[in-house]
């Protein structure tokens, strides 16, 4: 059976043990600031802070590299275009296109800050099971609708994954081999169409099952959280990181 794996959840660290609500706040704060920085030095700061989070969460190296690999898969494409997209000091040319220092720095900023934010968010959020995250979001008074939307998205992505697995197996059982043919594309189109219909139906049933068990829109959880010293420490450290990043950005600290 297909399922969404949560490779970072089981682990022991200060971050794993801290309050889900605090972690959600820290992640929001950090990713907001991290996403907005424009200077190279601030981007480096974001990346370093992300690394520190990852190290203190003791994330399993292999899974982490895999996740970063996917993120950077997209970023590779940016490197094909961005270096040539800015006016400035020419570095080298390919045909009519000239790469500039400014362009390269711009691409580097994006690379560093996305990796930094992914590291931080992975350390803070992926280290808890999704249910805790829902409870965490509720405990810091994020709107109920948002929390519900989030939890259902997770549950339904799951449903879609399962349905897709089932149909793919059914097709394989009957000798379907993907080829570059009309038949293949038609089969895929059917699969996709059925996927939507069936996922919709099953999502409906999950919703009904929740209603039958007294669900009224609020998620409760078995775990009651107490705020501990470590939680404030986490918040303090994150605030310091964020403060440092903003300072670096505003005062245009030069790295080179």
């Amino acid at each position: 059976m297909q399922h969404i794996s949560e490779p970072f959840v089981s682990g022991e660290s200060l971050i794993h043990a801290s309050h889900p609500g605090f972690r959600v706040v820290c992640a929001l704060l950090f990713s907001l600031v991290g996403a907005l920085v424009l200077t190279l030095s601030a981007a480096i700061a974001v990346f370093i802070a992300g690394l520190i989070f990852a190290i203190s969460a003791r994330l399993p190296m292999l899974s982490l590299l895999k996740r970063l690999f996917f993120v950077n898969g997209f970023i590779v494409f940016l490197w094909l275009f961005l270096p040539f997209s800015r006016p400035g000091d020419p570095v080298f040319s390919v045909g009519p296109f000239t790469a500039t220092t400014e362009g390269i720095i711009y691409a580097a900023v994006i690379t560093l800050k996305s990796n930094g934010v992914v590291l931080a968010v992975t350390s803070l959020l992926s280290t808890m099971p999704i249910q805790l995250m829902g409870a965490g979001m509720q405990s810091v008074r994020l709107p109920d609708k948002l929390c519900r939307l989030f939890l259902f998205t997770w549950r339904y992505v799951h449903v879609m994954g399962e349905e897709f697995g089932k149909m793919k197996r059914a097709a394989t059982m009957r000798g379907f081999v993907p080829r570059n043919s009309i038949m293949t594309y038609r089969t895929y189109a059917w699969l996709m169409g059925m996927l939507l219909v069936r996922s919709w139906d099953r999502a409906q049933v999950v919703w009904q099952a929740m209603l039958c068990r007294g669900f009224t829109g609020k998620f409760h959880t078995l775990n009651s959280f107490r705020v501990k010293g470590g939680d404030w420490l986490l918040l303090a450290v994150t605030t310091i990181f964020v403060g440092a990043i903003i300072a670096t950005e505003l005062f245009k600290v030069e790295v080179f």
Partner: peptide, 17 residues
């Protein structure tokens, strides 16, 4: 009918509601 990560959470979902 099961939508929580662990069995105990799923069974406790109703009573909590």
């Amino acid at each position: 009918q099961l939508f929580c990560p662990t069995v105990i959470e799923d069974v406790a979902f109703g009573p909590l509601n």
